[in-house]
Design a protein around this nucleic acid. Structure first.
Lengths: 396, 396
DNA sequence: GCCACTTCTGACAACGTTGTCCAGTCCCGA
DNA sequence: TCGGGACTGGACAACGTTGTCAGAAGTGGC
């Protein structure tokens, strides 16, 4: 777990190690207290609170200051700021002047502490920069905005530990709800949070060892139909290159591949199947093995790709001189920008990331509005978009 | 301004209208108090605080509960949670057990209120889903993470009012710092915040009517060199299609275009220049006008595009049958994925969005760590990447 | 056995806001 | 002139945490 500074054997669910504590270094505590832990050092957590006399926002005017300046009571200022009724227009004017003069701005931390609600939701995805996740993020943001909430988000980088840190840090901030694209396969750590009222929706992949709402694309059916499409165009030896085997969508898509092959009565050589990281080196190696038959089995005539990162790499590999003379059919899971302008244009199984994000966020806010049904699963359909690369016939 | 619920003439800098107040409807207040404002309705701000008996996190255990259960004092729990020295290992064990048993998690709002620092920074960009801004966001996130801070971000959608709302909402949450890609050209509204100690860095575009740190790409020089590249390949009639004229980078790039043309002694017909929204209809119309000479001037033989959105649309337009037979040279500002696999591959002026984000965030944290120099401007270079589309010679 | 010292622990106030509740003030009609 | 109601304003406690400080418990030396 290697989590809390005091990692004394037991995990420390109360201290996610994210908002750094002040003991930012191996200094101090030569006592019996356990060592400050390896993490703190590795993180290079620089304490950046030292300016402005210790308290960064020190000297900011408070409602008290505004009240004094306007010559009214504290609560009156609060009423004005919150637009509550019961303030004469003259008083209101004086208060507003004081606010402007002092540059007052309400401190939402105090407000949250008092009210118990933050009007913010958290989102944890794999990588904010990935063209699949960024529109998804944006869609969640828009729904949040429509509900008057702010979005706090972070990237897990497919690291279960990092997902946990992030999610728990968000909970510590008391976000009202959480949308998570899981990197971990065990979410029991969230059980206390969910029990405490943090609405949680899992997106793109199901939660692990826990019951919760989820919104998924139909990966199995999408992959099955994509591979069936290749088969319908005459292919009998088809490769599958997907994401890491631990990832739910990768497994589902592989299952879809196998189902399509089985339905057509086609055998599958194990050297036609490759799961792993989406980095281009790995994909290139695996693709080369399938295409030149060096894996021991006959070379494939078509490839099904498990996600947009893999597809882009494959497009790149297939464009290399080595394969130029020999067109290989390709169908990829996930649509991507400019897929239609490549040569050949790439046939894809499209899912709509924005729609996924929107659906998840809307489900979340339904929960926040009080929907009490048991956890439900929403499955979003995929769509085959034939553009050319998937309709290339086998060479013979 | 249409801002606060009590929009009684004066703008209300203390109440950004974002975290919604409770008066979420035209109900109540039939009094002299001004109407609740158009905004609330238009926003469809649904109150989602009504579950769990009013307070969403009600019933969550606090340090007091943990202390009671462990049979220790409040402060001892705080010490354990924060890894402070001076707790016997036996006491610590009891406290940890209580924490786990109760599912306690520290409430960061209270912590923030007490400590004055939030360990979070805000980021406002144009559109989180844009392939230029998403890696930029991710880079800011990574730097924040390295400094132990969380990232709260939002999209302004190029709406100045929305930028203001977002930035002020972030300030109300007392983010330690702010990175802003401006949509507005007047940032005086931020002056009180900056004075109060919110470190602020402007990114990609300079702030308006205010002094502050900024990180910019060298748009002028990038555009100049791109257009010079086209000229060097024999073009004399070159079009420029850019973003909306209010946007700083659009103006700079246009200036670069004009400079390159002037340096080569080439005249510029005004119908060769088009600024506007990046939507494909507008771009298509303007491109068609330049290319077929219907604007009155002779048709252009090359086009320089002002950003990645425009470039992608242009690629699409130029791929249409109408222009297939007549190759048009193209150089675009901003690199984009798969640019090298199009036919022809697209020559671009590349900037590195991740580098921009990283630089801005690092500057921000230097400020937070106490750097007190006057505001500085960081200019990041661009790089011409010749791939083919920019080296197409003119037809004659 | 006692004192000085160290180590550990807890009571209390403060952070800035909002909800409750009571005390004024004003206007009106009786 | 007074009483009643409607409205306005303010004192106070509470939210959950951390910093201060003083007290309690344990330890070693004489």
């Amino acid at each position: 777990m290697a989590d809390a500074p005091n990692a004394s054997g037991t995990a420390d669910p109360a201290h996610p190690a994210w908002p750094p504590t002040d003991e930012s270094g191996p200094a101090a505590s030569p006592t019996a207290s356990p060592a400050p832990g390896t993490r703190t050092g590795a993180r290079a957590a620089v304490p950046h609170a030292a300016r402005h006399g210790g308290r960064p926002h020190a000297g900011r005017p408070t409602m008290k200051d505004v009240a004094a300046r306007a010559g009214v009571g504290l609560k009156t200022v609060s009423r004005v700021v919150n637009g509550e009724a019961g303030v004469s227009s003259d008083t209101e004017r004086r208060v507003r002047e004081a606010i402007t003069a002092l540059g007052f701005r309400r401190n939402d931390s105090a407000r949250v502490l008092r009210k118990g609600t933050t009007a913010s939701i958290g989102l944890v995805v794999e990588d904010l920069a990935d063209p699949f996740y960024s529109p998804l993020s944006r869609a969640v943001e828009e729904v949040a905005r429509a509900h008057g909430a702010l979005l706090i988000n972070g990237s897990s980088a497919e690291d279960p530990e990092r997902e946990r840190e992030l999610a728990l840090a968000l909970c510590a901030r008391r976000v009202d709800g959480l949308v998570i694209v899981p990197a971990s396969d065990d979410h029991r750590y969230l059980a206390p949070e969910i029990a405490a009222g943090v609405a949680t929706v899992f997106l793109d992949r199901p939660p692990g060892r826990i019951e919760a709402d989820m919104v998924l694309s139909d990966s199995f059916e999408g992959a099955r139909s994509g591979v069936a499409h290749l088969i319908a165009h005459g292919h009998r030896r088809i490769g599958f290159i997907g994401d890491r085997p631990g990832i739910h969508t990768a497994k589902e898509r592989l299952r879809g591949y196998r189902a399509a092959m089985a339905e057509a009565g086609l055998p599958v050589s194990e050297s036609w199947v490759a799961l792993g990281p989406t980095g281009s080196d790995r994909v290139r190696t695996d693709a080369a093995r399938m295409l030149d038959g060096s894996g021991g089995a006959a070379p494939v005539t078509a490839v099904f790709s498990g996600n947009n990162r893999v597809t882009v790499t494959l497009v790149r590999v297939l464009a290399e001189p080595e394969w130029r003379g020999r067109p290989v059919a390709l169908v990829g899971f996930d649509d991507f920008e400019l897929a239609d302008l490549l040569s050949p244009p790439v046939t894809v199984i499209a899912q709509d990331p924005a729609d996924l994000g929107r659906s998840a966020a809307e489900l979340l806010f339904r929960r926040l509005d009080g929907a009490e049904e048991p956890p439900r699963t929403l499955s979003r359909p995929t769509k085959l978009v034939a553009r050319g690369s998937g309709e290339i016939p086998p060479p013979d």
